[in-house]
Design a protein around this nucleic acid. Structure first.
Length: 245
DNA sequence: GCAATTTGACCCCG
DNA sequence: CGGGGTCAAATTGC
């Protein structure tokens, strides 16, 4: 009845702006709970038009224990509302589909851990709940390329390069000429227990992987890695059964 | 004044 | 019984 897929997205935006991670939908916060074992409370969001559009998508945001810079966003449910939000495509023409949320409220420079991996390395998706994480192959140049995380190795559990690639891919795809960049990786898992064979159309991912915009003067450039090395076929990497089960 | 957030209570599941 | 998730009333911001 209720299609539900669970996506784990880790967004690390830091130093410059943090807070409003716009994923392309309006969310209304409906709760906040302290999670056992987590230092920070988890926030629960729901689509603003849940009742209006039957958009029962929910999202929960929780930041990492030690890295407040990393926001762990979990989406669940499917978005059905393509309305006056910002998916910005089929609506009217907008000069720019990017919306900048700049918080200059609290701008505190981080210097400890994440330094380089603010944007480029940014996000990792790990499949939790499934053992497939270990099976994740190594990635050519995404993180290891320009990343010089010394003791801070990203993705302790494992990296889903596919997701990564995809993230960047969508990013590129969606906003080819956008100076600002940010992206996230998405890891797809099975549903709540109904359909394991999840087929993702690009629209789904489009919804999912809406580009976050971040205008900054920081040196951003690292999207080059993706497509070149990406040899994933257009069909989709998600076909890989190993990942899911 | 309205709408979105806040915060505690309630509920559901393991 | 506890943890996690949602609801609902109150509060705050716009």
């Amino acid at each position: 009845m209720m299609p539900g897929w669970r996506d784990h997205v880790r967004v690390s935006s830091e130093n410059l702006l943090e807070g409003p991670h716009d994923d392309g939908h309006s969310w209304r916060k409906y709760g906040q709970k302290d999670i056992l074992g987590a230092k920070y409370p988890r926030s629960y969001y729901r689509c603003t038009y849940r009742n209006t559009q039957n958009c029962w998508a929910t999202k929960q945001v929780q930041r990492s224990d030690e890295d407040p810079t990393i926001f762990e966003v979990t989406y669940r449910g499917t978005h059905k509302c393509g309305n006056g939000n910002q998916p910005a495509s089929t609506e009217k023409q907008e000069h720019k589909s990017n919306k900048l949320y700049l918080n200059n409220n609290n701008y505190q420079p981080l210097q400890s851990q994440d330094f380089l991996l603010d944007f480029r390395a940014g996000l990792w998706a790990n499949t939790e709940g499934l053992d497939s994480k270990e099976t994740a192959p190594s990635f050519p140049s995404t993180s290891s390329g320009c990343l010089k995380s010394e003791n801070h190795s990203i993705s302790p559990s494992g990296v889903l390069d596919y997701s990564n690639i995809f993230g960047s891919f969508s990013s590129l795809f969606m906003s080819p000429g956008t100076p600002e960049l940010s992206y996230f990786s998405v890891s797809q898992m099975n549903n709540f227990g109904d359909v394991l064979n999840t087929q993702h159309s690009e629209s789904d991912l489009t919804e999912l992987v809406s580009a976050n915009t971040s205008a900054t003067n920081s040196p951003i450039m690292d999207l080059d890695f993706s497509l070149d090395h990406v040899e994933l076929d257009p069909n989709f990497p998600f076909d890989t059964p190993e990942i899911f089960s």
